[in-house]
Design a protein around this nucleic acid. Structure first.
Lengths: 105, 105
DNA sequence: CCATAACCTCTACAATGTAACACTAATGAT
DNA sequence: ATCATTAGTGTTACATTGTAGAGGTTATGG
């Protein structure tokens, strides 16, 4: 089973589509979690996901922006979709009928 | 941030309410994930959650069933609810607009 | 009084999560 | 030309979580 952070990366990549690369994924994750996501965490996890065949990465072209250097593009493989799907299903299932907010024990 | 398995335990406990104890939580998790959940994993994680103050556990009375020995009852603390809530929110947010099934790349 | 059922505990190891630090390449201003 | 700045990536080391396996304890029912 994939872990939480791995899921976050895969989902963010999937959402970003053509525009998924290291830095953009990072921004997406930070937005979703509302917490900083360190650079190191991101690339290490990306490497692991690639090693497991859940994502595919390749170096893109440099853009013509100030500092616009080559990006490491990412896309989710079919196997990655399957894993993410299983993760999400498990979370959803165990969370059915639960509303986390507004509990007063 | 709590991990995936930790979330599963907290959510299952919350769902089970008064009937949450080691073995019942285990069954709930297995149902949600459709995968076996080893006994060891469960109690180790329960211990860690308790150490972090996310759940509270105590030994209950033995029931009058064959082999019905004392159960380790569990309940989620306010802090646990908060953590689980944050986890769920992050997952939901990064998953918005994604439908994992039926992708044909 | 013993086999069996329903639980819990402990130990050890593998996999994930995370931070700190170092690095490369292009632009734009001086 | 050269140098600060911007946009990106990579590496190493360690902390935290995830997971299995084997072993214990207490009760019932025969």
């Amino acid at each position: 089973m994939i872990g939480e952070f791995e899921y976050l990366l895969i989902a963010a990549t999937h959402r970003l589509g053509e525009d998924a690369y290291g830095a953009s994924i990072r921004r997406e994750v930070e937005e979703a979690t509302e917490r900083p996501c360190s650079i190191g965490s991101l690339y290490t996890t990306l490497d692991r996901l690639e090693a497991k065949g859940l994502v595919r990465t390749w170096m893109g072209e440099a853009t013509a922006q100030r500092g616009g250097r080559a990006k490491r593009m990412v896309s989710v493989t079919a196997k990655g979709i399957e894993s993410a799907s299983a993760f999400y299903r498990a979370i959803s299932r165990v969370s059915r009928d639960i509303s986390w907010e507004a509990q007063c024990p």
